[in-house]
Amino acid sequence: MPTVSMTVNGKTVSRDVEARTLLVQFLREHLNLTGTHVGCDTSQCGACVVHVDGRSVKSCTMLAAQANGASVTTIEGLAQGDKLHPMQEAFREHHALQCGFCTPGMIMSAIDLVKRNPNPSEETIRHELEGNICRCTGYHNIVKAVKAAAANM
């Protein structure tokens, strides 16, 4: 089994895994980072989005081996102690969640979008987040939260 090493949420990790192990399996099953969820198993719903070297990636569409040597950030790596990331705080503040299953992936996608568009319009946010499915909220509060967070990032 190949050894895969990467930095996850600032810590260097190394595991021997089957070559076909997906990044999401590596995170959930080998590192017990279960905040990254699997929603559709087929790289469409966005529940599994994490950052790989600062870019948002659907972690069920990438092999762990492809992330070898990379720096990975998951939802667990955003807050500084008790202090939430501005995007997390905005999702909490603006009721941008219900069942919460899509929330981690949605937040990771939203952070990436604000990095690329520091002052996004509502239209840009709606366009950018179309790769993340939410079945509960109707997106209205998610768009509001992202807009509010962009002002604080």
């Binding site: 980072l33 279960t34 905040g35 990254t36 998951t74 939802i75 667990e76 955003l78 807050a79 939430l84 997390q88 705080e89 999702f91 909490r92 009721h95 969640l97 219900q98 919460g100 929330t103 981690p104 937040i107």
Partner: peptide, 10 residues
């Protein structure tokens, strides 16, 4: 929501 913080932190 009572789990809001838990949801945004995973």
């Amino acid at each position: 929501h009572d789990s809001a913080v838990k949801h945004v932190t995973g």
